[in-house]
Each structure stands twice: as structure tokens, then as C-alpha cells.
Design a protein around this nucleic acid. Structure first.
Length: 902
RNA sequence: GCUGGGAUGGUGGAAUUGGUAGACACACAGGACUUAAAAUCCUGCGGACCUUAAUCGGUCCGUGCGAGUUCGAUUCUCGCUCUCAGCACCA
């Protein structure tokens, strides 16, 4: 029987399922290893070949670690709440739960075909009330905690109340208002990103360039009452925590930017003819003598307060104009300078000179204090503003070309700066703050860009809040009364009065009749602690038991896309730190090592149609000789870039009589790497590939495609290579294509063959550890090429089966069973390479003189360095052609430099 | 503009701390087997050149561009070009 993946793969998948081979429990005798894939959102389109890339990689690691004696946790589940299901529900009336369930079934079926070693007994789904009960629990905990700045951790609200006995005298509403300023989950009027088309608010990471990431709808700023998570006090811990993580520098850097720490000072500028003072934040207090004007954000409270009566009409007009400009317009013309003078002046803290106060939309209300001191000589934005309005530009740091542009460096000497003259700008920063502190008008200050996370969504398909309102004040439900299950509604749209869809639910209230919160949680809620739930997924008392938490700790290896860098990955870290603070989580960081698999792009194919004759298509190589238009063609009609003419003619009626201008009697298509999309006709499903080549070939091929973290186009032309490899391996082990049994021999294995086998053990082991799966696959190919037709002993086949199992588990399992084993190859221990076979029996000695090859020869293994030299010198003497020259001689043993003499 | 990656044959990609560049695979070409095709197996495959009847053998150039360090650079340093990704009025 030839290698027939379809028969063996189904068999072993059933075997694994029936015998629960991959079921994991806590086992104190073994070291633990937790490998997690980012769980997918089950969309209606199903999986394409890009999805399994990360899953296959993590599966290889899992199988490898198991063989090394680790107790491996490798679960999978579903990020099941989400916008697409809701929008589909709005269009069709079908309940999102129904669609989601169907999609999950499809995903599950597709994943099962790939032979992944998930422990499905731990499957979770974020839309399951038994799951989101614990999301609600965590939220309730956040409501009941505040961030204690002194202790630098979250503490119970009761602890805060003890420090404020005066609050007990307040009315319930006033007291709650105080508490809302501290609760980690709090309700506040906030400027939010409102998306009218989606009917909901969005988090900052869900908005890009003023458009929603999902759907690309315009987003505007609005003030709304929203639930938020106070993530900003965690900024410093989130930043510091990055240092210890084994994450790519790229993702760490993205998080650093997102947190946006900047160190500087806050300075109070007195306002002329007023007792008020204007507080600004600056990172360059050293340039304070270069201040020539101040700028307020248009949305700042000061803007109207400081408008003089003479300037009032101009200020009003400008503020009106700013309001009209949406976020998008503002981003669209960054270069445009606009602003207006308020008519008021501030007083310089050192020179006591008056400084005009302006309003400008390049200053943001939401950052710092919403006001700046402008130093045009040393800030490019202030420079542009000053040039536009002809304001003075006063250089205080030596260097640059102030006539042309702002000089922003801090490596110059201070000038025109009184007590700071002559200092380096970088050291003047500290000096300036000291002086300001003496005057009592300034202090050192650290600012973060990280904003609190807005946590309300005006949607149906999400976790309901565990919140009700008593006398108009928010309360959270106790854990015993959770979950608050998502109610049924007649339509998935906002109500006529503009309330979220939950406003349509009947009896949406607590058992005591208090109304429940109408908004739902955002997408990241369910994914922020799912890694803990997998540890103990059936627990109805807790998110996870102490015992399981202490055993599994956190995720050792997390694999998923880099697109979650500033969303899920930062929220999860925050969530975990909070759970750590309240004594639930055993560790502060959820994911020790993170690997971002590269996107697999689709490979689109094109045909070239004559503009003059829409029925004629020109082959790729000849297209320049004609005037043509490129059209996408379904990639299923194309093999190795050659078009199947028959299939193309049958594709659409208008191509029935298509004519072709061929090259070498064939039609060659053009190609390009693009996102996999239905509209480009380039989507490849893993099912198609499995049906034709089998799961093991798909697995090997996805790994062979290139480095895991690299973006790469899907290109089927190479798949034959790995398929041939498995066929060769089959023939090697079975003797020929027809044999049903193994072709075993007792002939001792040659030393050379042992060398190949042990090099394979060595290389594959190292490659898996380095996540260098593509070179591991190459090593397997070398191994089979070398050993094919020889080395057919039981021991060799056994070693090969164990090595191959992580990559091609079905093939390995079949081979293992035929070797007489009755248990899964998964349970076999990982082989160790014998160092004896890793060195060559004859050392290859290469002698170079002045970098040029002069001599090469072999010496017996074990020769000492001195012997090698002696042989080399003797041979050189015979050659006798080096006399009279200064030489540098290098001697290589097996390609390695051992020494050199001059 | 800022930050972080990347650039190696026709193609995807290999190359421990600097040490014989191009492993492995695809594509292509030639050959064997076959009535034929498929499959399989074998050979060649960066460029220029020398040598030869042809092999064998040998030389020079070659890892985006230009310098530098070094006996020796795909690898390290500096300066560019192009490209991918992220951030972007964050004071």
C-alpha cells in the first residue's frame, strides 16, 4: 500500500480522541509547560491556510515538550463575542448565538483535520454564561477596588473609606461620586470615540486615522457617561514589566509607545492681573528662558476664561471652527497651522516679563494639562506656529540653524538663560526644576499617554455588566448572583429612545426589581483572563482553583499575531496585574514568552485581457507587447502559474469562447502577494490541502515555507517537495510502495548512517528550541535522502518516528504502531544525540595562507593540535614555495579555525 | 518625521561566537525506465574566464550601495538606497 494519508490520518485522529491522549491534569511530579494559542474569533468564512500556521508551530512545541517529560497544557477555545455575528443578526434576524455556534462547529472540524494535540476537555467559549460569569466577577472586583498610589497596588474600597471618615457624612450620591473618582471600574463622563454607523463607542485601539478599525466608519469625539477601567495608574508597572518578558523588541516597543512615558516638569505661570495661574507640562524645562508665548488646547477650560473682551469674538469664532473640524480633518492636514490670541498674558516665573497666551489646535486637551509653554527655537511645532503668527523666536541652546528650523537636540550649551548659561542642556533640565521648586511654581512630573480603557459598548452581543442601579447609583451584584445572563431581545438594534439593544429586553432587572446596566462589555473583556480559566475550566466556585493556579502559574509560550500588541496584550497584562494585586493570580505577567507568527498572504493570479478584444487573453511573458488589463483569476484554475484553460472557460459564461495567446503552448499567469480575500479569488482552505495531500504534508509545508515570524505569501508550488519527502520516508520504511508492513533488516547500521541519524537528532532538537522549524524540516529531508534504502533497523525507525512525531504526527504514529508499539508515539521519550556520532571520523584540515587556500588534507580523528600542526608544517616544507614571505597561516579542522601562527 | 525589522541564485530560503556563501526545496534543463504518459531514479543548475577533444582541474567576481575594522565580513562599525510594519501635532 502506497502512502495514503487519508486513511491513516482519520484512524489516528479517532484514536487520539477515543483514548484522550492529549488530556492533561496537574501532575506535581512533572515540570509544567503551558503553551497557548491566541484563541480565534469564529467568523463565518472559516479557516484559511494562514490561521493554522501558529497552531501548528505551538503543536510542534507541545509534542516536543511532552516527549521531553514536561506536563504540557495546550488548550483551545473561542473568542465568541464580536461585531460580525451581531451585524449578521441585524441583517438576518438570526440569533448571534446560533451563528456563533455554527461557526465554532466549522472551525472545530477544520482544526481536527490538522491533527493538533489540544486538550479539548478544557475548551472554553467567551459567550458561555459559565465562562463570562468570571469576567463579570473580575469587573465587580475592579468596582470594589481602587488604586492605592502609596502601596502601588489595588486595594479594597473599604480601605480607602477608612482614610476618609468625612465621607460618611455625605449623602449616598455625593459619597458615590467621591468613590467613582477612585474605583478601578468606574462610571464617568468622558470624551469618547463615538461611531454613529456602528451605534457604539470604541476604545482607542479600535480607532485608526479617525475611522473604526472594523468597517472603516467615521468616528467622532463625544462626551458620554461610560464605564471605564482605570488602567492608567498601572502605566509604570506595565512599562517596567516589559523588561523581563521574552517578547519581540517590536511588540515591546509598540507597548512602550502606547504607554508613552515622558519625564519633565509641571510649571505654574501666573496670569497677569489675576490670582490664577496656568499650569503647563513640559519635557524641556531647560528652555524656559526661550518661552515666547503660551498655547492652550481649544477644549481647555482656560480658553474662554482667558479671552479678553476685545478678543472674545475672535476666540468664539475659532473655538466654533475647531468644534466643526472632526478628528479626521484634524489628522488629514497636520501641517496646517491655526490659532488665535486670547488677549491675556502670563508672567514668566524668572524674568517676570508678560507672555501672550494663544489658543491653538496643535495642543491636545487630553494630554498633560492641555496647555504648553511654547519655545519656538527648540520645538518644531512651536516653531511653525511662531513663524505663522510672526511671534518671536528666542534661542537658548547653542547649535542648529534657527533661521531655518527648530533645534531640538539637548546636547548644546545653554545661552540667554541667566543662571543656566554654560550648562549642557541635558543637565540644565534638572537645574531648571530645582529653581522652579525653590520659587514654589514647579515640580518634576512624569506623564503617560496611556488612557483609561473605555469599557462600555452599546451593543447586544457581549458580556452584560454585573451592575444594577439603586436610586440611580451603580451597584455590583455579589458573586453568588452571577452570571447575569444575556437576555433575549426582539431586535438587535438600539431602542427608539436611543438606548442600547438591551433596552429592549423584558424584565431586565435584578430579582429585587432594580434596573440592570444596558450596555455590554467590549471584545477584549473575554480575552483578558481566559488563560487562567483554561487551568480549571469547569470550576463553578472560582475562576480557577488555587491549586491549579499554583501549578500552572502563567503561559510559558504564547503564539499569535502582532496585531494585538496595543489591545489584547496590554489589557491582559493589566487584568493579570489587577488579579495579582487582589491575591488571586500567582504572578504579575500572564505571558512569559510571546511569538508573533507572520501573516500568510494569499498568492493571487492574474490573466491579461486585451483592451481591444475582451475575449482574448495574453500570456504573462507576452503581455508587454499588447495593451492589456490585468484581472484576478481564481487560483484553483492555476497550477505552477499555468492556467487550466478548460476550467477557466467554464468559470463564467462570458469566458466560454475565450481565446488565448500562448507562450510555449501554455498560458502563464502573473501573480502577486495580497491579503487572502474572496474578492481576489486567492483563498486557500486547509481542508482543500488536507484532502489532496493530507494533514502531515500541510503541517510540514506550512513550517517549511519560511521562518515562523516572517510575513510570507502562500505558494503551493513547493508543497510537492514535502509530499515527496513523506512518500520517500514511506518507501524507506516499507521497502516499496506496495508493502503493507515495514521492511526491517538486522544488518548493522553503518557508521556513516548513524552519523546522519544522530546529526538529525541534534539539529532537530536545536531547531525546535529555536523555533526554526523550516530548517528542521530540511534536516528530515536530508536524513531520509541519506538513509533511503539502508539503515532499516527497528532502532533507527523508532528514533525517526519519535523525531518526526511533532511535525507529522499521523505518519509517526502509523510507523510507531507498525514497529509493534501499543501506546501512542506521543508517550515515547525524546531521543538524545550520541556525541560520538556528531564528530567526523577523519578531520578535514584546511591550511590558508594570507587568506588563500594553500593546502587541505585529512588527519585521523583524535589527533592533537600539535600533531595537526606538525603534519601541516611538514607538507608545507615539501611545497617549499613560501620562503621569504611574511605569512599568516590558518588551520581549519572540519571548517573551524583552531589556531594560527605568524 | 520617529521607532523596530528586512534586503543572499530564476523562486522560497540555509549558513554556532566573524572562518570553504548558496544547505534543503521548488522551478528549469538533460538523461534512465516506459509502446506512451504519470510516478520514480540519476545528472546539471550564481556569473565571467582559463585549461581540455570532452571530462578532470583551476582563476577571478559575487550576499542592496559606498567606506571602515580584520589574516579573513552575509555576519561587526559608520554613511546611504530601497522595502515592510508600527506610531504620529503626546509639548
Amino acid at each position: 500500500m502506497a502512502y495514503q494519508p487519508e486513511s491513516i490520518e482519520k484512524k489516528w485522529q479517532n484514536y487520539w480522541a477515543k483514548n484522550a491522549v492529549y488530556k492533561t491534569g496537574t501532575d506535581p511530579k512533572k515540570p509544567k509547560y503551558y503553551v497557548l494559542d491566541m484563541f480565534p474569533y469564529p467568523s463565518g468564512a472559516g479557516l484559511h491556510v494562514g490561521h493554522p500556521l501558529g497552531y501548528i508551530a505551538s503543536d510542534i512545541i507541545c509534542r516536543f515538550r511532552r516527549a521531553q517529560g514536561f506536563n504540557v497544557l495546550h488548550p483551545m477555545g473561542w473568542d465568541a463575542f464580536g461585531l460580525p455575528a451581531e451585524q449578521y443578526a441585524i441583517q438576518t434576524g438570526q440569533h448571534p448565538a446560533t451563528t456563533t455556534k455554527k461557526n465554532i462547529a466549522t472551525y472545530r472540524e477544520q482544526l481536527d483535520k490538522i491533527g493538533l494535540s489540544f486538550d479539548w476537555s478544557r475548551e472554553v467559549s467567551t459567550c458561555d454564561p459559565e465562562y463570562y460569569k468570571w469576567t463579570q466577577w473580575a469587573f465587580a472586583q475592579m468596582f470594589d477596588h481602587y488604586y492605592d498610589v502609596k502601596l502601588d497596588k489595588a486595594m479594597p474600597i473599604s480601605h480607602l473609606e477608612k482614610q476618609h471618615p468625612e465621607w460618611t457624612k455625605l449623602s449616598p450620591a455625593a459619597r458615590e461620586a467621591e468613590l467613582q473618582n477612585h474605583r478601578i471600574a468606574y462610571l464617568a463622563d468622558l470624551p469618547v470615540n463615538w461611531c454613529a454607523a456602528l451605534g457604539t463607542v470604541l476604545a482607542n485601539d479600535e480607532v485608526k486615522d479617525g475611522l473604526s478599525v472594523r468597517g472603516g466608519h467615521p468616528v467622532e469625539q463625544r462626551i458620554m457617561k461610560q464605564w471605564s477601567l482605570r488602567i492608567s495608574p498601572y502605566a509604570e508597572r506595565l512599562l517596567q514589566g516589559l523588561e523581563k518578558l521574552e517578547w519581540s523588541e517590536a511588540v515591546k516597543e509598540m507597548q512602550r509607545n502606547w504607554i508613552g512615558k515622558s519625564v519633565g516638569g509641571e510649571v505654574d505661570f501666573a496670569i497677569q492681573n489675576s490670582t490664577d495661574s496656568l499650569r503647563i507640562f513640559t519635557t524641556r524645562p531647560d528652555t524656559i528662558f526661550g518661552v515666547s508665548f503660551m498655547v492652550l488646547a481649544p477644549e481647555s477650560d482656560w480658553s474662554l476664561k482667558l479671552a479678553s473682551s476685545a478678543q472674545r469674538p475672535a476666540v468664539d469664532a475659532y473655538l466654533e471652527e475647531c468644534k466643526k473640524r472632526t478628528e479626521r480633518d484634524r489628522l488629514a492636514d497636520v501641517k496646517r497651522v491655526s490659532g488665535v490670541f486670547t488677549g491675556s498674558y502670563a508672567i514668566h516665573p524668572f524674568t517676570k516679563k508678560p507672555i501672550p497666551i494663544w489658543i491653538g489646535d496643535y495642543v491636545l486637551g487630553g494630554y498633560g494639562t492641555g496647555a504648553i509653554m511654547a519655545v519656538p527655537a527648540h520645538d518644531s511645532r512651536d516653531y511653525a506656529f511662531a513663524k505663522h503668527f510672526s511671534l518671536p523666536i528666542l534661542p537658548v541652546v547653542e547649535g542648529g540653524n534657527i533661521e531655518k528650523e527648530a533645534f531640538e537636540a539637548t546636547d548644546g550649551k545653554m545661552i540667554n538663560s541667566d543662571f543656566m548659561n554654560g550648562l549642557q542642556a541635558s543637565s540644565a533640565i534638572t537645574r531648571a526644576i530645582q529653581e522652579l521648586e525653590k520659587l514654589g511654581v514647579g515640580t518634576r512630573k512624569v506623564n503617560y499617554r496611556l488612557r483609561d480603557a473605555i469599557f462600555s459598548r452599546q451593543r447586544y452581543w457581549g458580556e452584560p455588566f454585573p451592575v444594577y442601579y439603586k436610586d440611580g447609583l451603580p451597584k455590583v451584584l455579589p458573586t453568588e448572583e452571577l452570571p447575569v445572563a444575556l437576555p433575549e431581545v426582539d431586535k438587535y438594534l438600539p431602542t427608539e429612545t436611543g438606548e442600547p439593544p438591551l433596552g429592549r429586553a423584558k424584565n431586565w432587572q435584578t430579582k429585587d426589581g432594580y434596573p440592570l446596566e444596558l450596555s455590554t462589555m467590549p471584545g477584549f473583556a473575554g480575552s483578558s483572563a481566559y488563560y487562567f480559566r483554561y487551568m480549571d475550566p469547569k470550576n463553578s466556585k472560582e475562576l480557577a482553583s488555587k491549586e491549579s493556579l499554583n501549578y500552572w502559574q502563567n503561559v510559558d509560550l504564547y503564539i499569535g499575531g502582532a496585531e494585538h500588541a496595543t489591545g489584547h496584550l496590554i489589557y491582559s497584562r493589566f487584568w493579570c496585574k489587577f488579579l495579582f494585586d487582589i491575591g488571586f493570580a500567582p504572578v504579575e505577567e500572564p505571558f512569559k514568552k510571546l511569538v508573533n507568527q507572520g501573516l500568510i498572504q494569499g498568492r493571487s493570479s492574474y490573466v491579461y485581457r486585451l483592451k481591444s478584444d475582451v475575449n482574448t487573453f495574453v500570456s504573462y511573458g507576452l503581455r508587454d507587447k499588447y495593451d492589456t488589463q490585468a484581472l484576478h483569476v481564481d487560483v484553483s484554475f492555476v497550477e505552477n502559474d499555468f492556467l487550466n484553460l478548460e476550467a477557466f472557460r467554464n468559470w463564467r459564461p462570458e469566458y466560454k469562447n475565450a481565446k488565448f495567446i500562448l507562450e510555449d503552448d501554455r498560458y502563464r499567469c502573473g501573480s502577486a502577494a495580497e491579503k487572502m480575500s474572496k474578492s481576489f479569488y486567492n483563498v486557500i482552505n486547509p481542508d482543500q490541502v488536507v484532502a489532496r495531500y493530507g494533514a502531515d504534508t500541510l503541517r510540514l509545508f506550512e513550517m517549511f515555507l519560511g521562518p515562523l515570524e516572517q510575513f510570507k505569501p502562500w505558494n503551493m508550488s513547493g508543497i510537492e517537495g514535502v509530499y515527496r519527502f513523506l512518500q520517500k520516508a514511506w518507501r524507506w520504511t516499507h521497502g516499496n510502495d506496495e508493502s503493507e508492513t515495514l521492511s526491517l533488516s538486522t544488518t548493522p547500521v553503518s557508521e556513516e548512517a548513524m552519523r546522519v541519524l544522530h546529526q538529525t537528532i541534534d539539529k532537530v532538537t536545536k531547531d525546535i528550541q529555536n523555533l526554526s522549524f523550516n530548517t528542521a524540516v530540511s534536516q528530515f529531508m536530508i536524513c531520509v535522502n541519506e538513509l533511503s534504502g539502508k539503515a532499516q533497523t527497528k532502532e533507527v525507525f523508532e528514533t525517526f518516528a519519535v523525531l518526526l512525531a511533532p511535525f507529522a504526527p499521523h505518519f509517526a504514529e502509523e510507523l510507531w504502531a507498525k514497529l509493534g508499539h501499543t501506546t501512542s508515539v506521543t508517550l515515547a521519550p525524546w531521543p538524545a544525540a550520541n556525541p560520538q556520532f556528531l564528530v567526523a571520523n577523519a578531520m578535514k584540515i584546511v591550511v590558508q595562507v594570507n587568506g588563500k587556500l594553500r593546502d587541505q588534507f585529512e588527519a585521523p580523528v583524535g589527533s592533537s593540535e600539535a600533531e595537526v600542526f606538525a603534519i601541516a608544517m611538514a607538507r608545507e616544507a615539501v611545497q617549499a614555495q613560501l620562503a621569504g614571505k611574511t605569512i599568516r597561516k590558518q588551520i581549519y579542522v572540519n571548517g573551524k579555525l583552531v589556531n594560527f601562527v605568524v
